[in-house]
Design a protein around this nucleic acid. Structure first.
Length: 197
DNA sequence: CCCTGATTCGC
DNA sequence: GCGAATCAGG
């Protein structure tokens, strides 16, 4: 494969969109993420558009660092959602927080949205169901952005609330879910029919 | 271990 | 110019 105008086009676009080098490589096909990164550099679009996240520079053996230090200063301090500091630092920590839980996590789906059909208990074998319950306790509780090709994408909880996350356990080869959730998701028609009613 | 980008250097 | 190998880090 070579860097045709079209492929470079795609590369530029995806890189600008913040896609990772490996994602771009998969999209293009025939190239590795290294190739993509190499090309990105050659094209001179390494530091991502305006993003003040400038890498200080990777490895460096020579102690000599000719950097003129003429940097305009990265600036740009992230604005946080004003955590509202505690009024006073009480010596005693009697009051217990209710439950930090998955904490500051915005709902993936706005409240009021109709939820996709959830598997009902009567369609799943008791063993599998029990297994699923167990797994959900050990789930890694990943957010949408944290999912990768080999993390279980089984949704857990209510998307309309903050009490929502994805299983995140290692997926079964080639499947979108972990072993347990695969068994919940993919069932032979016969098994389903037999269990109905 | 999974992943990220950065750099080097033979081709 | 290209990209595998390697590095550095999350």
């Amino acid at each position: 494969m070579s860097w045709t105008e079209e492929r470079v086009e795609t590369l530029k676009k995806m890189w600008a969109e913040g896609q990772s080098a490996s994602q771009i490589a998969k999209e293009l096909g025939g190239v590795t993420r290294n190739a993509v990164i190499g090309k990105v550099h050659r094209l001179g679009l390494s530091n991502r558009a305006g993003s003040a996240a400038a890498k200080p520079a990777a490895k460096e053996k020579p102690a000599a660092k000719p950097e003129p230090a003429a940097r305009p200063a990265p600036e740009a301090a992230q604005h946080r959602a004003t955590p509202a500091p505690e009024a006073a630092t009480e010596p005693s920590e009697i009051r217990r927080e209710p439950a930090p839980a998955p904490a500051l996590r915005k709902p993936v789906v706005p409240a009021g949205q109709p939820l996709p059909p959830q598997p009902s208990a009567n369609e799943i074998s008791p063993e599998t169901l029990a297994s699923a319950r167990e797994v959900e306790k050990n789930a890694k509780k990943l957010t949408l952005m944290e999912l990768t090709e080999r993390t279980c994408k089984w949704p857990i909880g209510d998307p309309a609330t903050e009490d929502f996350w994805f299983c995140g356990l290692p997926t079964q080869q080639g499947k979108p879910y972990c072993e347990t959730h695969v068994s919940v998701a993919f069932q032979p028609m016969s098994a389903r029919r037999d269990r109905k009613r």
